[in-house]
Every structure is written in structure tokens, then in C-alpha cells.
């Protein structure tokens, strides 16, 4: 399998639980990179803390495993110093939108060319199943034994509002779609956000009586629908999948280069 060339096989089998959706995201990411035909030296994977962040240890690119929520800040530094590299930032829902919420919106606002992959499993898996800002009203967690009353963020709406120029959503069930979106997001010249809904059978699944990994991954097929589908009009509760935003706006590193040029010219 060519995708095995992109992983650090010595660390396998990986540490994720049986049936964890993050593994499928890793699978999709590797296939996207394989389709792009990039060399390992052209890619930097920067991650924060959490189950999702462990991806950086398993891929054989340039990798940085940094602080909780701060992956985008480190990634911004990498990108500004070496704009020719492709920076990919895999994050969990809590890492991206709770601890790193501010970095997330400001990276989107700047439109710096990076790919943020938000693996949304609606829970803090690594630390024992506490509720996250994506758990949503009615979701059960170890810290919400009588159900959460917090409304949840909508990753896509937040990214759109903050100014990201590529925004897409898919699920672990739709692995081919994920691969295509990650592929396009890496090629996009601007800040790209790909939300991938993943299953956490160990914590979210158990607390919310969602069944095993197979039941959970199949549920994504039933609760989502392509953007603008007829099913969405009939059942507004369905979650839309697809590419929500794809537009060209000035990219941060390119604009910064212009400033350097202007400053040197005026000296």
C-alpha cells in the first residue's frame, strides 16, 4: 500500500480505541496526500493536544506536537518562515474551538494558507469524556451526568463568519468525500477548514447510548445530507455536508511579502 510510505510504522498499532473515527481521518488524510503526489518534505503537520493531535506522531512528514489549542499559532510561525511548505493542522473539537478558539478565528480572519482539519467527536476523549463546546444541548458526558445545557458551536458557521476562504464538512462514514475535501483544502491558497464528524465509541458513544463503532459510523449516513438537498427541506434537523465556502481572497504570507518589499523600497 503506497500510503504506508507516509506513516511511521514503528508506532503502529496506534493508540486510538477500537473503532475510533480519528483513524479513518488519518486514512483519508494519507490518501489525499498520496493523490497530491507530494513529497514528505513538502508537508508539515502541526498538532496540539488530545486524541486527534496524536496524528502528528504517526505521519512521516515534518511534524510538531505542540501546546493545547495553540497548534494554529505554531503553524502560523512555520508558514510565515517557510511559506513554500504545506501546513496541515489536525485538531479535535475542544482543541480547535475551546482552548484554541481564539487562534482559530484569527487564523481564519488572516486567511493564512493552512489546512485546519477539525475532527469533531463532540467530547474530550483523552481526558475521560468531559463535555466540549460541540457536545450540544442534551448530550451526556462525564461532567454532564444530567445532560449538557450548553448550546454547541457550528464549526462551519463559525469558520465562515471568521473569514475562512475554504470551508467544508464531512463525516468518517463518507471517507472518499473526506479525502477529496482534504485534497482540495491543501491546494487552496488561503485558510481552509474541513470539519469531519468522527465517532468516539469509548466516551461519547457509551454515555449517549449510541451503540458500538459500526452503529455510530452508520448513524452519520442517516443524520447528514448533501448541501441543498431535498431531504434537508423536508427534515431541517439534518446536518449538511459538502463545500460551503470556496473563494479567493488575498493570502497572508503573500501580503506580508508585499509589505517587506514596500518597506525595503522606501528605505
Amino acid at each position: 500500500m503506497p500510503i504506508k510510505d507516509y506513516i511511521r510504522e514503528r508506532f503502529f498499532p496506534h493508540m486510538w480505541c477500537p473503532g475510533c473515527g480519528h483513524g479513518t481521518v488519518l486514512n483519508s488524510l494519507l490518501r489525499a496526500v498520496e493523490q497530491l503526489g507530494m513529497s514528505k518534505n513538502e508537508i508539515v503537520v502541526v498538532s496540539g493536544i488530545g486524541c486527534s493531535a496524536r496524528i502528528s506522531g504517526y505521519v512521516d512528514f515534518h511534524t510538531l506536537h505542540t501546546l493545547h489549542g495553540r497548534a494554529l499559532a505554531f503553524a502560523t510561525g512555520v508558514k510565515l518562515s517557510k511559506p513554500e511548505l504545506n501546513v496541515i493542522v489536525p485538531m479535535g473539537d475542544g482543541d480547535a474551538l475551546a482552548i484554541g478558539g481564539n487562534h482559530f478565528i484569527h487564523a481564519a480572519r488572516r486567511n493564512i494558507a493552512m489546512t485546519a482539519i477539525v475532527m469533531n467527536n463532540k467530547i474530550y476523549g483523552m481526558t475521560g469524556g468531559q463535555f466540549s463546546p460541540l457536545t450540544g444541548v442534551g448530550g451526556m458526558a462525564t461532567t454532564a451526568p444530567y445532560a449538557s445545557i450548553d448550546r454547541s458551536f457550528d464549526v462551519v458557521e463559525l469558520a465562515k463568519a471568521a473569514g475562512a476562504t475554504y470551508v467544508a464538512r464531512s463525516t468518517a462514514f463518507h471517507a472518499q468525500e473526506c479525502t477529496q475535501m482534504i485534497h482540495d483544502a491543501i491546494l487552496h491558497d488561503g485558510f481552509s477548514v474541513v470539519e469531519i464528524m468522527t465517532q468516539c465509541p469509548t466516551h461519547y458513544g457509551r454515555k449517549n447510548k449510541k451503540g458500538g463503532p459500526a452503529e455510530m459510523i452508520k448513524e452519520f449516513k442517516d443524520i447528514t445530507t448533501p448541501i441543498g438537498s431535498k431531504a434537508k427541506q423536508e427534515n431541517p434537523g439534518l446536518i449538511e455536508r459538502g463545500v460551503f465556502v470556496e473563494k479567493d481572497l488575498p493570502e497572508y504570507c503573500a501580503e506580508y511579502d508585499k509589505i517587506i518589499e514596500r518597506a525595503q523600497g522606501g528605505a
Partner: peptide
Amino acid sequence: EIRCPDLAIE
């Protein structure tokens, strides 16, 4: 193969 979370099937 594309959905295996453990990259175990080829």
C-alpha cells in the same frame, strides 16, 4: 480499506 481506522486492511 478506506474506512478502516487501523489501516489494517489492504
